[in-house]
Simulated scan of single mutants.
Amino acid sequence: MSERSPAPGGLALIESLVNTLDIESGADALDTEDGRARLGLTERDLPDARELRESLRVALLAHAGHPPHREVTPLGTLLAAAPLLVAVDDRDGSARLAPAAEGPLLSRVAAAVAEALVAGTWTRLKACEATTCHWAYYDRSPAGRGRWCSMQVCGARAKMRRYRAK
């Protein structure tokens, strides 16, 4: 798991949601009251939140050029149901997409994706190449070709496996 700084803007929410599951250990922060509270979720929200998490993970894997880790509901299908509205700032006239109602995770994620699309940062949010990890991270490399959440952990393991295979 990475020690990188959080993703910018609304992408931090997406990164945080995807990283609620530690694939290697199986620990799921959404199983805890504190983990759910950090994302504004209740136990009733869990099935939808987990479905959204894995659909996001597939999109982030695609950003890094990796195949899906499993069959999921397409992210576009899920986000199509997110109620958003255009919020206009009365002071400077700027506009952005915002959740139609405060709270629903799906709408907050959809607004974050829209913000990242406008900023050009959406495809910089990726999932680690390591099949035992798939941790979400924001790729700050100049060329945008990062492959692992952590070069010291997942990257080193991959390089060691390649070395031993030779």
Rank of each mutant, 00 (worst) to 15 (best):
W135Y: 08
R36P: 01
A81T: 14
E115T: 10
S16P: 10
A27F: 13
A116W: 04
K166G: 14
V109M: 01
C133S: 10
L21Q: 03
T32F: 04
P67Q: 09
E24L: 02
R157M: 15
G9R: 10
S107D: 11
L75W: 01
D48R: 14
P67L: 12
R38Q: 13
A81W: 05
L60P: 11
D139K: 09
K166V: 10
T132R: 09
L85K: 10
S55W: 02
K166Q: 13
T131M: 06
L84D: 07
E3P: 04
L56H: 03
M160T: 13
G10N: 02
L78H: 05
A80D: 15
R53C: 07
P142V: 15
L30K: 11
V72H: 12
C154S: 09
L79A: 02
P8M: 09
I14R: 00
S94W: 03
A110L: 00
V118N: 05
G26V: 02
R162V: 01
R145Y: 01
K166P: 01
V58C: 08
R108P: 00
G103C: 11
L39E: 00
A111E: 03
L41N: 09
G35D: 00
D92K: 06
D92S: 04
A130E: 08
C149T: 08
V118Q: 14
A64F: 05
G65N: 08
E3K: 12
D90M: 03
G103Y: 08
H63W: 01
V88I: 15
A64H: 09
G65A: 09
L97P: 04
H69A: 15
S25A: 09
L60F: 11
A80Y: 05
A29K: 08
R53I: 07
L85I: 11
M151G: 10
S94C: 03
R96T: 10
L61P: 00
D48K: 14
A95R: 15
L39M: 04
E24Y: 01
R145M: 04
C133K: 06
G93Y: 12
